[in-house]
Design a protein around this nucleic acid. Structure first.
Lengths: 205, 205, 205, 205
DNA sequence: TATGAATGAGATTTCATTCAT
DNA sequence: TATGAATGAAATCTCATTCAT
């Protein structure tokens, strides 16, 4: 007899739980948010959640994976329309700048930054984070920068590894401050625009 | 009955506890570190700690205050030797870059970044953080930038408020990544040097 | 509507579940083994198991019944070949001694001993156990001992009730120790042989 | 400043908790008894118990240790008055027989038998149990038996290792049955007397 | 009948804080 | 002031049982 519940259904459930976790973690942070918070957001029972995930940490790691996956799916897809490396990087800045307009994405980034912080404290987690950073974030930007250098858009003085690290550092740093200080106190979009200028001016030519 | 112990003694005790808390928070993070961890580092008793501080959060806030105070005392003192705004900002970059060489300062920055993250989640805490950011961090840098603009070191296109926010964002972002990825994976000093170049090139002229 | 599945089919299913339960209980003990363990061993679904049994405890009781039933079927059948009470008792000792060679039977005994332990703690269960002990175990041996006394194989000093209790006590005690200490540490067969000698020497004459 | 609470006090507390655990485990068995049961018996708070023990299993192991220790302290002390090996072994039988009269000791033995059962299922626990059996129980009896053989009380046909194992097997087996069947159904003392006869008759001469 | 996802009471353990000494 | 044992609310996770399909 075939399984009554389809894989699709299970995937949907997992997504629902991860979305609830995103909300809970976004609201209170990973450490402070409880399974009961996730339960409250999801409308499921505690047991149901443990049917899909092994532990709170498992939820956390899988949420991290999902987020990265979604982000880069979006980037890959969006960047297809842009031909030059310059346009691509400008699009990335713009995307992050626009986050302000979308509270979900805002929370999402906050959780992502918190991931970073917590990760450093657990060896296994740290390895995950390091791999993610190198294999996905860095790789993604290095390719664009190299492309720009080859075509002559960017100067030869640009070290694509260093500059990529710096790029993500700037983004995370500004997002971090924005996530804490809030729109009232922190002119996030203006700062992002300035960040773009500073960055582009340096690498171009 | 007159106080048996001097204020000096009390201050010394408080400092000792805050130093122990710094170690504990640096090691495990604020949420995960326990009062018993602080007890272990300090060599005092739990009761003693509660004689000097009201709660774990109180320790946390006062540690934050102390750290900021010390940092800016150091900056104010150090910057006296430097005449131009350019030199001053370069010194700040250099100071942060050199943190790599000092594990204590490294932990300290990590704790500071975590402060930020957690702060956003509690109204009272957030206000504290916002005030600190505006009244101390921003004020400090804005003054230098304005000075540079007035003297003509920096261009008039520079918005000192935006550029200051960006400065701290870059520093915290790079420190954040470094604190998680570690020296093995993250060429922190090179990145800081590049950050300085990028930043200075933009504001100068 | 007539029953779609035969009683035979149902019986077969129940046996399968009980065998799986035997394995699960043998592996982890009644308390620690979960329904999911039984599911894993049986290859059936949780729902299927609850179609045939009311609860975990029901499985447990019925397994106990089955085991006792099987054991005494085997004994009754085997003892037919033996004429004298002495031979019969020696056969019992031999059967238990040979258990070492069969891991399944070993586990089986362990589960049986655990049954005893747990039973004492629940009034209903205890009654079941007491009845089983008196009506089956004791009855079985008392008959043999009485037979031996009547024929003059065993001395008149033998109280068949006491001696029967002692017989089962010795067997369970030695099996208990063996089940925990294992073959490496416990010369089970030698001990059983000695137990037989001690026991037979006392009752004979 | 010296600790306010003496080691004596702590020892007393630990004993109290272990006694409460003994009651709880005796009542319901190790698996079924909860920390809350121990809390109820002890009158302390849950946290207090965790100040003295690391986990439920820790309580269990230390209770086992304490029991063994007490038992053999009692045996060593008591056996001083007895000169011959025969007298010593008879005393052991008598001690176990008299357990019936003391409900605490009864429960105690029940818990001890359950220890055995559970121990076999956890590698670390098993090692503990094996060591205890060999180094304490077996050693203790082997010495007495060897002494009896040397003096000529016991026959040379007696293998002190095998016979010692058998001795403890008989005791545990009879206690096991008694603990489950209860005094109403199981003439414990008569059986113990018979066990003694059977055992002594075999080894003597 | 068979399936296995869902339930939720309940178990173990942690830890900030208090307070008698 | 200093001590650290005691407290108990709250967190994570388990699992026998149910029930819609």
């Amino acid at each position: 007899m075939p399984p009554i519940v389809s894989d699709e259904y299970k995937q949907k459930k997992k997504r629902e739980i991860l979305d609830s976790a995103q909300q809970a973690f976004g609201e209170k942070g990973y450490q402070v948010a409880t399974i009961d918070d996730i339960v409250a957001y999801s409308g499921m029972s505690k047991g149901a959640i443990y049917n899909y995930f092994e532990s709170k940490e498992d939820i956390y790691v899988q949420l991290m994976n999902l987020r990265t996956e979604r982000t880069f799916e979006f980037f890959e897809e969006s960047l297809k329309e842009y031909k030059t490396a310059t346009e691509k990087i400008k699009f990335l800045f713009k995307t992050y700048a626009d986050v302000e307009l979308n509270e979900d994405r805002q929370k999402s980034i906050q959780v992502h930054v918190e991931f970073f912080i917590n990760s450093g404290r657990d060896a296994e987690m740290k390895k995950l984070m390091v791999d993610r950073f190198k294999d996905i974030y860095q790789k993604f930007l290095i390719e664009i920068v190299e492309e720009g250098k080859k075509v002559g858009e960017f100067g030869t003085h640009v070290d694509s590894n260093i500059i990529s690290s710096l790029f993500w550092g700037i983004l995370d740093g500004v997002c971090l401050h924005y996530s804490v200080l809030g729109a009232d106190e922190y002119p996030y979009q203006d700062i992002m625009v300035e960040a773009e200028k500073i960055f582009m001016q340096y690498i171009q030519k």
